[in-house]
Design a binder for these strands. Structure first.
Lengths: 109, 109
DNA sequence: TCGTTTAATCGCAATATTACTATAAAGTAA
DNA sequence: TTACTTTATAGTAATATTGCGATTAAACGA
């Protein structure tokens, strides 16, 4: 075992979990926050911003890229990264329905 | 290795990651959705709702309880679970600041 | 050309997570 | 009491994740 039994759950539930795992590591949170703060494409400086080895950060960037949350475009020897705003919005919509279900304060327990 | 280097990140970044990992498994998403749908305390039926072994679900419930997102109160041989609405709201606040940073559509890359 | 810079990939070790079976604990009901 | 129900815990195996050193790849500049 050790593998998630995705077949037992709905596509929507699995999608929420996949997005959540993207934010489940503080380095990826930090990368995304940095890209938002810069408000534009950022070439190279991400490794300098975060205190992890370059291959480790490269791996985190790859995960975010594969999920579509960021884009990377080659610029000479560098690679420029930025938030993919369309996919970010899509992700937000997916999580919004889940997070924003509010309840009147329960007093049953 | 294999352990997250939390010391390299801010408390806020780590908090976002911890909450996100709670939603990083579809079974925990399903449990929370069920509790929201029931709109009250739910005793016992969670195991019947989700196609995983009882100890596995008990483990997922424990994680959600330790994070404070749900409460469990003993009722005879059963345990009743419900959303902890106060902590749920706190969690939402933490994640909202992160998720709801919007950008004008970038065209730099 | 050759060296430099930058980022990705490979391969590995350490740790974490998921899921189960078996069992225990705690209450209920006969 | 004993049998039963319900949930938690212990222990374990399989898989996933994290992180890094070493290396590679690709583009640049002298």
């Amino acid at each position: 075992m050790g593998a998630i039994k995705t077949a037992n759950f709905t596509d929507a539930q699995n999608a929420i979990a996949v997005y959540a795992r993207a934010f489940g590591h503080p380095a990826r949170v930090a990368i995304l926050q940095y890209l938002f703060r810069m408000d534009s494409c950022v070439c190279g400086e991400i490794v300098a911003e975060i205190d992890l080895a370059q291959p480790t950060i490269s791996q985190h960037l790859k995960e975010l890229r594969q999920l579509g949350l960021i884009r990377g475009t080659v610029d000479g020897t560098r690679v420029c990264y930025c938030i993919d705003t369309d996919n970010w919005a899509r992700m937000k919509e997916t999580l919004h329905d889940f997070l924003d279900q509010d309840l009147p304060k329960l007093d049953c327990c």
